[in-house]
Design a protein around this nucleic acid. Structure first.
Lengths: 247, 247
DNA sequence: CGTAAGTTTGAAGCATCTCAACTTCTGTGG
DNA sequence: CCACAGAAGTTGAGATGCTTCAAACTTACG
């Protein structure tokens, strides 16, 4: 029975979505799991493999993606520390998309049978996990709108606002000052752009004084401006009011 | 207590995903609901409104979409008859995206409290509904990859393959011969393209003899070819093997 | 018979891609 | 301590896929 503080973080996020009794919370914290390390660009769940686990991100950055024949990839969801990945396989045991580590990451791998028996005994916990998965779907929905209808600049702005805020909520820096350990090529995979155009888009934002980067640390100098460019409206993240307010 | 045959269809879909006892099925079929009509382009759920219902499509076509400042819209999911829309609001009571009728549609509106009390009493039903929502999310994930990384031709091909197959499974024609009651502008909203380019893309497919349209009836003359162009691999729809095989 | 909604066509513009080179940085073996 | 290789970032020039704008055509409908 592993018990990292990131599981606490996940449980308190669930509790935000659906209030959970102390007993339910304890049951979640008692979930068994193995700590695993995955190197940058390594598979967490290989494409087409059987799914046996959900994954709690403890450190690093992992992504679900789908790959096309041309070899191009599209990131579907990015998971930051404190996030649980592949929860949707609890009710549907099929690996629909692969999961890869974006950076070298530490994960807690939680066997699905343990989660299944938990949700069968505790309907409220099931509801909370379903709610969590629904927010993931809402993030994906917004991402789709971004990729489909916003130009490169807006897409980049939206992604940075969303990740900044999510990292802040995860206790990893501030929404306008955070480390995003992704190469420009990986950003391109997330945004549906070529690395070259990612580069030029970032340069334009830097030139306008909207943000600065030092290595992979993003410092957003004009958050409101960036949010306006990206048409970022964080409702879809279903965050508690106090976390949104904090400038 | 309304009891249209489309509710049967929905319940048997749930039963495919998670086997349900006769008693559970009866409870689902006993869900209360009101039949409503929505005209083409009318709101089912207005942007930002309170959510009170899930919606079973009985006739027509409805879509979740998100709208950007420019007025452009991106369709997120299309729902064909037999589909249940907005199930994700069962655990998360927030209207994250609006829902509109693409064509004049008949829906059964099911109050969320009825669904909630059902899932609280019957964990297996909850699991089935969660599984259903997870498949919706998988469809969205594939859609995102399409919009992000495929050119217009591939996007169009993928959409037509997916909708053809889904309509066939819903008993509405054949995967290579179905009515898709959408204007080219609406197709553009789904694909992230302008109406003009939708037109030219369809023309190209027609010229190559891959498909024909008569009004809004799509006749796919070369299904395999179209699937190859769209890189369509229907695993993500989680359909039973026999429905996939049927040519 | 006139209007509106949808489809089709043409021509010009631009956002993004492609390809290829060059730079910078980092880690590694000689 | 230097030389080198590999990975990431940057730059330039040309190609292209999609958009924009504007107009014609078609069909359905009051």
């Amino acid at each position: 029975m592993v018990h990292p503080s990131h599981l606490d973080q996940f449980v308190s996020r669930l509790n935000q979505l659906v209030p959970l009794s102390v007993d339910h919370q304890a049951a979640l914290l008692g979930l068994p799991g193995k700590i695993i390390q995955v190197r940058a660009n390594g598979d967490v769940v290989a494409p087409g493999s059987e799914v046996e686990n959900a994954y709690l991100v403890i450190h690093g950055l992992i992504a679900r993606f789908s790959q096309l024949r041309s070899g191009e990839r599209q990131l579907i969801v990015l998971h930051v520390p404190g996030d649980m990945a592949d929860l949707h396989t609890v009710p549907v045991p099929r690996a629909i998309t692969a999961i890869e580590a974006v950076t070298t990451s530490t994960l807690m791998s939680i066997p699905l049978p343990a989660i299944r028996s938990l949700v069968r005994e505790r309907p409220t916990v099931a509801e909370a996990l379903w709610a969590y998965a629904a927010v993931d779907a809402a993030i994906l929905a917004r991402w789709t709108a971004s990729v489909g209808r916003q130009p490169a600049r807006g897409r980049m702005a939206h992604l940075l606002c969303e990740l900044g805020l999510r990292m802040e909520c995860a206790g990893l820096g501030h929404r306008s000052d955070f480390n995003l350990e992704m190469t420009q090529a990986q950003l391109g995979d997330a945004l549906g752009l070529t690395p070259v155009h990612v580069n030029r888009t970032l340069q334009a934002l830097r030139k306008e004084g909207i943000l600065t980067t030092i290595d992979r640390r993003f410092i957003i100098q004009q958050w409101d401006e960036l949010a306006a460019i990206g048409e970022f409206e964080p409702d879809y993240l279903v965050l508690p009011a106090d976390e949104l307010r904090a400038a």
